[in-house]
């Protein structure tokens, strides 16, 4: 049997579909799942053109939930393109469980790293430059941002996608064997630490609750007590609470968000939360 090889046209189609459609049909339930399905579609069509059952099996692989930082995440999509090609050529170690294990193992860490490097660093730098160019109502800042960001995203994602594809085809054993497990565990640890840093840097849940004496002076400020125990304690508690609701109680993200709305409303009523903002 002739070895199957993905054509440049199919790979380009897969990449462009990911570049444009990674988050277009976003929902809290499925996030980037449909973007991933549509990106893999031209590749699966080419690899399994003569076998509809195998095509269905391979498309079913990508029904599972997926969400990551989309720019850096292009490498994961490229890797699965390579793995799918290896599967089509009969690689024994590559099945749906292996591919999804790799996707699930990499998406969290890549999200943490991508959020800090791209969303937390590159985008603010570009926006800072663009805002500087927008003085006096000039449209140059917006034009600069649109052009530079899209060039960075397009060529960066393209490089990562095709690099991932090369890794997927050339290093199947490396990615799915014991060394692959060691790499995944290392990347998971890296991702966990970065996600912790992202939580503490970007999320701020604070309480405004305080006790006042007769002179109107606060003698017990609850947020200061929390900070003395562990800075950012409330933020960590809420993140772990949301994890517990979704992972252990199997609540959907929508229901968790609804519960947070109720908690926020009750918290505001009793004076536990007060953003203290003004127009």
């Amino acid at each position: 049997m002739a070895e199957k090889k993905l054509s440049k046209k199919a790979l380009n189609s897969g990449f462009h579909r990911w570049y444009y459609g990674n988050l277009t049909c976003f929902s809290q339930e499925h996030m980037q799942t449909f973007g991933y399905l549509c990106s893999m579609l031209p590749l699966c069509k080419e690899l399994y053109a003569d076998d509809p059952d195998k095509m269905a099996e391979s498309m079913d692989t990508y029904r599972t939930f997926f969400n990551t930082e989309p720019q850096l995440g292009a490498i994961i999509v490229g890797v699965t393109a390579g793995l799918e090609e290896a599967r089509a050529n009969g690689a024994e170690d590559v099945d749906s469980e292996t591919i999804n294990g790799l996707r699930a193992g990499l998406m969290g860490p890549i999200a943490g790293i991508g959020d800090s490097l791209v969303v937390g660093t590159v985008i603010p730098i570009l926006l800072g430059i663009a805002m500087g160019m927008s003085g006096g109502g000039s449209p140059m800042g917006a034009i600069f941002y649109i052009i530079v960001w899209n060039l960075f995203a397009y060529f960066g994602m393209r490089f990562l996608y095709f690099k991932g594809y090369d890794m997927g085809t050339k290093a199947v054993e490396f990615l799915v064997g014991d060394i692959g497990n060691a790499i995944r565990e290392a990347v998971t640890t890296l991702g966990g630490i970065v996600i912790g840093a992202v939580s503490a840097s970007w999320i701020s849940v604070k309480t405004s609750f305080a006790l006042y004496n007769e002179a109107g002076e606060a003698y017990m400020v609850l947020q200061e007590k929390f900070d003395s125990v562990f800075p950012g304690l409330l933020t960590a508690i809420f993140v772990i609470f949301c994890w517990w609701l979704m992972a252990k109680k199997q609540l959907s993200p929508l229901k968790v968000m609804g519960l947070l709305v109720v908690i926020a409303f009750v918290g505001v009523l009793i004076g536990f939360f007060n953003p203290g903002l003004a127009y």
């Binding site: 999320i203 993140v239 994890w243 979704m246 993200p253 709305v261 926020a264 903002l277």
Partner: peptide
């Protein structure tokens, strides 16, 4: 109350996104 609740929810909602990432790890 409505705007205080809205902005408090805005501060709490990112916890859900981080929790979804943690679910994978």
């Amino acid at each position: 109350i409505p705007m205080k609740t809205l902005f408090t929810v805005g501060a709490l909602l990112p916890c859900v996104g981080i929790a979804i990432l943690l679910k994978q790890i």
